[in-house]
Computed example of a mutant assay.
Amino acid sequence: MRTVGFLLLLLLVIIAARLAGGTAGRVAAEESRKSASEDLAHFIGELEKFELASSRRQQALRDTYVSELQEGGWESLFDAGRIKQDVGLAETSRIVNRAKAALGKFEAGVLASMETSRQQINALEISDRERSTMLSSFDRGAKASHETLALEHRLILEAESVVSLLSSNTSWAVEDDRFVLQDPELRRAIGARFQEMDAIALRQQKIYEGANSDALAR
């Protein structure tokens, strides 16, 4: 009987140990899930704060750039009435130069902002995997920004080429606030440049739409 009693006691001890182990396992699993959930919430919070700060910097730079273009007369660059009064196109050339200066300032600000963003990502208290995810997303945005800047340079250069064509050719006039281009070659050359500017503007719009789509997807 003592043997039976001993075996029964041993069995009860084993069962109790297994039950305790199972409970501990469930507790550990629950704590693991809770920790993972907290880590995800932390990552999302850091990501949202980073994107908000980055977006505000970029928007401030863009607003300043657009304001400087407007103040420099960019919107009236090819206004026929204004050009009619601009002897030798001196003011027209100054408008282009002011636009170049504004773009140079804007580009420097964007590049500095991107470097700040990269440093901030590297300083975040997140896992290496999460950092890699953020950097990949950041690099895609940086690529789009570089392309947009390049297109902006091309746009101003195309506009400058139109001014150069007008400056070096006298076979044009402004009548009833419209350009009249008597020289077919001049008409073709200027038309080609305006078509290129339209294509550049369209490409920029697609980049912006793509960036907005990525933001909404996140």
Rank of each mutant, 00 (worst) to 15 (best):
D183H: 03
A29D: 13
G45F: 01
A123W: 01
E160Q: 12
L40I: 09
T133I: 14
E152T: 15
L11Y: 12
A102F: 00
S55D: 11
R203P: 04
V174H: 01
S167L: 09
R118E: 03
F138P: 00
A201H: 13
A144P: 00
E196C: 07
G210F: 01
R203T: 09
R56W: 09
T133R: 14
F106A: 05
A201P: 06
E130R: 10
L10W: 08
I156E: 01
V180N: 03
A173I: 09
M114L: 13
A102K: 00
L202D: 13
S145A: 13
A17K: 11
V180T: 10
V163P: 03
S137Q: 08
A112M: 05
V96D: 02
S113F: 01
A20Y: 11
L151R: 06
A53K: 10
Q58P: 06
G81R: 11
R33F: 11
E175V: 15
A53R: 11
D128N: 11
T148D: 12
L216C: 09
Q59N: 08
L77F: 00
E152I: 12
D79R: 02
Q120I: 09
S171V: 10
A112V: 03
G73W: 03
T170L: 12
S35A: 15
L7S: 08
L157M: 15
I15L: 10
H42D: 04
W172P: 00
L216V: 14
A112N: 05
L202Y: 12
T92F: 02
A159R: 07
A215N: 07
Q59K: 12
S137L: 09
K206A: 10
T3L: 14
I126R: 02
A173T: 15
A80M: 02
H153Q: 13
R203C: 01
D139N: 09
L202Q: 15
Q120P: 04
S136L: 11
N212T: 09
L124P: 03
R178H: 14
K84I: 07
F194K: 06
R193Y: 00
L181G: 05
F179E: 03
G210E: 07
N97A: 10
L186K: 08
S55V: 05
A16I: 07
E91S: 05
L11P: 04
A36R: 11
G72T: 00
A123F: 02
I156R: 01
E147M: 09
L61Q: 02
S117L: 04
I95V: 11
D214P: 04
R193L: 00
E107G: 03
R94P: 02
R98Q: 05
K49E: 06
G141S: 07
G88W: 01
A211Y: 02
Y65P: 00
A215M: 04
G104P: 03
W74E: 01
E91W: 05
L202F: 13
Q182M: 10
V96T: 04
V96Y: 03
F43H: 06
A80N: 02
S35W: 10
A102Q: 01
